[in-house]
Design a protein around this nucleic acid. Structure first.
Lengths: 212, 212
DNA sequence: TTGCGATGTATCATTGCGATACATGGGATC
DNA sequence: GATCCCATGTATCGCAATGATACATCGCAA
């Protein structure tokens, strides 16, 4: 188990953590946060919600008629199903959001995990960012060598496409590096200044969790 | 019909256009050209090949035992199925590669079309590049407004993620613009110098084809 | 009062992917 | 000269995600 459905579950938990809402709005919010082309389909959302209901992570919020205190009264809202987090759901969220294994930095999941960095420790954040960075660097190596190997033998357009792709990934690596540095500056104001650049030193403090 | 399977079909046709090969190599080549994380699975490739055989676009190349003239003789190759293009396949390739409709600049297809730009006219290339650019600019607009609307109300990490995404797309737009300019410089050495920056002037010469 | 677009819930067929099974060739290593 | 391992090679199957679609109500403008 624990396919990539985890990231959808995390997104739903995270959004309901902020405020109860119904499926339609969840779809929009999740779509927004995993942004750029990817849209969340109802065919994925509703089965997921059903599953989460069965698991007791979320519950239907029957009394939900409040007027949002702002100007417009917004009466109405009949028959809609509003979901809210349960205690189990909060616990599950805490577990998922602090995971640092591959599932946290795989392409499809990284964005969601990043979006909820606000609910994590700097420790966790750094682990995830470094995981993603080394994943990207692996790809870089592979492509750079294959590019060098095939140079002069391929079409100019193919070359241009690969070059552009390469630069995009390099750019993301730089971005990650900046974020990591920034996190470290906050996390460890000053200690022995040791902590080598990568390759986890593995003193592993706190309630670590790189399951999976 | 005409789903996004078109892009896989185009890729296969394009690669077989260069040289006959068997499925295993096709998978590697296609994976390489749609690059960056996406891999072509056998579960997609073989059904596609079967379909294309049925449609008469490709055929099994039985006499394929040639020694590649280079040093290493490379004897062997028993029982392997080598595919080659048929006349219909070449025709189909010409059709697909010169298409300028949405299917040519949609996320999943653009890369493949770009990879075979060498087999198109400058006219076609410009149309596809402009199509993709305006598609990206639409997204940019949408996200920029939603970003402005939610500013100050969202998490710093969410903001940072959106900012990075925004910059990536802006960067791709710039890249496309450079390519378009470069194509135009080659295509139209000098005329009336009119041709406004975007919003197709629609004089639409030559055998246009924006089907779909 | 009619009509349309946004909101809202729900399901289904298709399809694409990951995993896997199976088979062989070419080198290493001993 | 046998053994092991990895790259090459063909093929299928279960599962999950997607895109499409159906259906219903609400607010609002013409």
């Amino acid at each position: 188990m624990a396919k990539r459905g985890d990231s959808l579950e995390l997104a739903v938990l995270g959004l309901l953590h902020e405020a109860p809402m119904h499926g339609y709005e969840l779809r929009k919010r999740v779509t927004a946060l995993l942004g750029w082309g990817r849209v969340l389909s109802y065919g994925s959302l509703y089965p997921c919600l059903k599953q989460m209901l069965r698991d007791g992570l979320i519950a239907e919020d029957t009394e939900q008629d409040e007027v949002p205190a702002g100007g417009t009264p917004r009466a109405g809202r009949r028959g809609k199903i509003v979901y809210k987090l349960t205690a189990d759901g909060k616990e599950r969220f805490a577990t998922l959001v602090s995971a640092t294994g591959p599932s946290a930095w795989e392409d499809d999941n990284f964005g969601v995990h990043f979006a909820f960095f606000g609910s994590t420790t700097a420790e966790t954040r750094i682990r995830i960012l470094e995981g993603r960075r080394s994943r990207l660097e692996e790809r870089l190596d592979g492509v750079r060598t294959s590019l060098a190997r095939s140079r002069e033998r391929v079409d100019a357009y193919t070359l241009e496409l690969q070059r552009h792709g390469l630069e995009s990934v390099e750019r993301e690596v730089r971005w990650l590096t900046e974020l990591i540095d920034s996190e470290r500056r906050v996390d460890v104001p000053e200690t022995t200044t040791s902590t080598s650049t990568s390759t986890s030193t593995d003193g592993t403090p706190s309630g670590a969790d790189n399951r999976e």
